[in-house]
Amino acid sequence: MNIKVGVYSSGRSISDLRLRVSIHSSESSLMEKYKLIAKIKKGVFQGLCLLSSQTVTLKQLGFPDNEGVPGSLIKEITLLQAMRHANIIKLIDVVNHQEQSSIVLVYESMETNLTSFIRIYPKVMKIPRTIKELLRQILLAVSYYHSFDIVHGGIKPANTFIDPATNTLKITDFVWPRTLFNSNTEDPNEELGFCYKAPEILVEHKQFSTAIDVWSVGCIFAEMVTQKPLFSATSEFHQLAKIFSIVGTPSEETWPGFSRIYRYLHIYSHCKPKDLRKLVPGLEPAGIDLLHKLLYMDPKGRITARQALEHVYFQN
């Protein structure tokens, strides 16, 4: 096939150029709508919407230009765009970045994430009702994702924002780790995300499911009570051993088939599950029961977000 650059047909490449110019001029420029205020991390900026004076978070996503806009990106952004939930940070706008194969996602901005909330308001976090209310909101957001069969995959305190005035909690995905196109925006100084990873992810089991988010919620639940991470290993390598040392090393009874999924199981010493009541002191018995179900090792037996919302812990 005879393919030339631009439009194939004699004399048409000039027209293509003209179209490019007109496309260019019809794109509303990023800078016309938003003012950059500060860099948060690589590819993520704090900005101001010039129209509404609202503070926003801008995230730039670049992609190759050899096959148009990548389909996975289109699917993901159109989905984020279609989702509306009080406990999920809203994607306000998507702006084409001129002259480059990139787009800028514009999110509503929130200042305080759960990590800093715990640090700034330790006394508020000591109130059992606060913990219950925040956990309920996380579970509402997670069950909303899961109702669309979406696995968030990166739930951690740094992605969980709270408005201190109203105690409204919102989960964000603009640091969505599984997104193909922002792998290099992960900041090494950022909070250690592996502390919240489910065991099936750590053993690189390929058939992971929505249950991995439920595990992360369990980790956050315990952290809200004790104000420190439950499974705080020094590295991702040690994370699994840390989990086993608290929840118990999986056996054929607690996780049927695990030894087949993970062939290095034998190198871990056999640990018995520790008493969560001692590790997470101050949590009411119903909360301990829910925590057990959220941190159930076998993802098949783990409670779902929807079921968790109906747990007796939330009944009073």
Binding site: D16, D65, A82
Partner: peptide
């Protein structure tokens, strides 16, 4: 591949895709 007097390079198609999505407010679902 189907007969058309014009064939566009992927870069041009991408640009048009981006323009279409912007005009549709990314509401492709």
């Amino acid at each position: 591949v189907l007969e058309s007097p014009f064939i566009f390079e992927p870069k041009s198609v991408q640009r048009m895709e981006l323009l279409v999505m912007a005009k549709l407010n990314w509401r492709l679902r």
